[in-house]
């Protein structure tokens, strides 16, 4: 479904991704793990169209994405719950969710089914629907970020560090919901520093180090790999 081939991205003179090649097949959940600064967020942002590509290509469903704007990519079905959540702080929970339907919804069109699904997945958001974004707790903001991405009717969901800054119990709760989204059949690419959580939910994984893919394989294999165990699982 998603293919990155030999992708190189740089900020000025600093090269963030060196020839990254990666595939996500339809229906699969893929984890992208690695330390801070490895280029994980850069890769997701590049897939969404926020960064310029210096070399290589990205394709979605077999057609090139390279020249498309962010907005066109969202319309094709790529939704992104970004690092730091980036909830609109002065909009209510419901306004945050409804805005994300604008790529597919005609003026005055309905969004009842989509919002009902999100509220079923995250009942807390329904309770807080009239509250402003900034007033939510970190966990609620993360739920809203994921819910907002789901409102875009995605076919590929990009999740950037959904566990970041959350207490362990909350991080597990968020990943339990990611597991549910996965079982509904949606294709997911998740970036995560919390290797345990990410590999538990994923089918396959890639390990990124200083902008290069150094390891890839089935999640179960990666969990057993001595290099992963030493560097990322701490045992």
């Amino acid at each position: 479904m998603l293919g990155c081939s030999d992708l190189t991205v740089a900020y000025g003179d600093i090269v963030a991704l060196h020839g990254v090649t990666l595939q996500v097949r339809a229906g699969e959940t893929v984890a992208l793990i690695g330390a801070n600064g490895a280029g994980k967020t850069t890769l997701l942002q590049t897939i969404s169209g926020l960064n310029k590509v210096r070399g290589g290509h990205i394709s979605f469903d077999g057609s090139p994405l390279d020249s498309l704007s962010c907005e066109r990519r969202v319309r094709l079905g790529i939704a992104h719950a970004p690092e730091g959540r980036r909830i609109f702080p002065g909009l209510t929970v419901e306004e945050n969710l409804v805005l994300a339907t604008s790529p597919w919804r005609p003026p005055g069109g309905r969004y009842g089914d989509e919002i009902a699904q999100v509220f079923e997945l995250f009942p807390r958001l329904k309770e807080r629907r009239r509250q402003l974004g900034w007033s939510l707790s970190g966990g609620e903001q993360q739920m809203l970020a994921i819910g907002r991405a789901l409102m875009a009717r995605p076919r590929l969901l990009l999740l950037d560090e959904p566990s970041l800054g959350l207490a362990p119990r909350l991080a597990e709760e968020v990943y339990e919901r990611v597991g549910r989204i996965r079982r509904s059949g949606l294709t997911i690419l998740v970036v995560e520093q919390n290797t345990v959580l990410a590999l538990a939910v994923a089918d396959r994984g890639y390990v990124l180090e200083t902008g290069r893919v150094v390891l890839e394989g089935a999640a179960a294999e990666l969990k057993r790999d001595p290099r992963v165990r030493e560097a990322y699982l701490g045992r």
Partner: peptide, 20 residues
Amino acid sequence: IAMRAVAQDLVAARLMGLKV
């Protein structure tokens, strides 16, 4: 509401597919 969203977070607005 989309105009307010753009004012509050331009990057998030682009990621939501708004015509920024």
